[in-house]
């Protein structure tokens, strides 16, 4: 019993460490090949289109509604002591510092991260990755680096879009629907919002982009066990990415602000 328990615990620890190590190695090799010529620009752009342009719709919708509900909720609270003007500040700060980057990253994880893991997983089980190696081409460089680089650049872009539509959503609900004084709404927002709030949010988003792409690539790249394995890798990549993003969010926030 006890021996079994110890075995299981140590097995789990070893598994987690191995996963962490694998993800770390994947990160380093992915970044390493990003600085080796020739850079596969057309691959990067294809991934940017997939990760950035095609996620824009879902990011805009989630961003807008998040801003709207933030306005609604904070209005309820602030009205109790007559500080409705602060709704704009709350929406803007929450969006730029926290919800913009995190929600965008989680949406991209769900949409693009899972697809990355599934795509690379399929390539692994159908020997397409081996085919690349046999052609004397480095699969990391062709498959992982473009995805990591594209995520790194696209997440901040999506985040700033999300920040903006979130604030617009908050403005719509706050000013147009709940009738908060527009001057107070805008002025208090611009007064308390700092450029650093926006920039740090974007830095966070870039970090989340790396996390989600590296995890998805790692899980996909080392898929085992046919179609079933692809499904497993996809699920695991989404779970690990999401959890890692939230943990990293705390760490980065405590470091930055």
């Amino acid at each position: 019993m006890l021996v079994n328990l110890i075995k299981r615990i140590s097995g789990t620890v070893v598994y987690i460490l191995r996963e962490l190590g694998g993800i770390g190695l994947m990160f380093f090799s992915g970044v390493y090949w990003a600085f080796r010529r020739p850079l596969k620009l057309n691959y990067i752009f294809k991934q940017m289109e997939f990760i950035g342009v095609k996620s824009a719709g879902v990011v805009i919708i989630t961003g807008t509604f998040t801003g709207m509900v933030l306005a609604l909720q904070s209005y309820y609270g602030f009205r109790k002591f007559g500080a409705e003007g602060l709704v704009g500040t709350t929406v803007a700060l929450s969006m730029t510092r926290e919800l913009g980057p995190v929600l965008t990253s989680l949406m991209v994880t769900g949409r693009a991260g899972s697809a990355m893991a599934a795509e690379l997983g399929t390539m692994r089980v159908t020997e397409q990755i081996d085919a690349l190696i046999v052609m004397a081409l480095n699969p990391i460089k062709y498959l992982v680096t473009p995805r990591v680089v594209a995520s790194f650049f696209m997440l901040p872009v999506l985040t700033i879009v999300s920040d903006f539509v979130g604030i617009v959503g908050g403005w719509l609900v706050g000013v147009k629907l709940l009738g908060i004084n527009e001057g107070a709404f805008i002025n208090k927002m611009t007064k308390y919002l700092e450029l650093d709030d926006i920039y740090n949010g974007l830095v966070k988003a870039a970090c989340f982009g790396i996390i989600l792409s590296v995890v998805a690539c790692y899980k996909g790249f080392y898929t085992k066990g046919g179609a079933e394995g692809v499904g497993r890798s996809t699920t695991e990549s989404v779970v690990i990415s999401s959890v890692s993003i939230l943990i990293a969010d705390y760490v980065l926030t405590s470091l930055m602000f």
Binding site: M48, E49, V53, F153, I160, V161, D163
Partner: peptide
């Protein structure tokens, strides 16, 4: 893809 990405990045920078 380059064109579409370019538009998105441009929008991001404008915002």
């Amino acid at each position: 893809p380059e064109f579409k990405v370019g538009i998105l990045v441009l929008i991001g920078f404008i915002i």
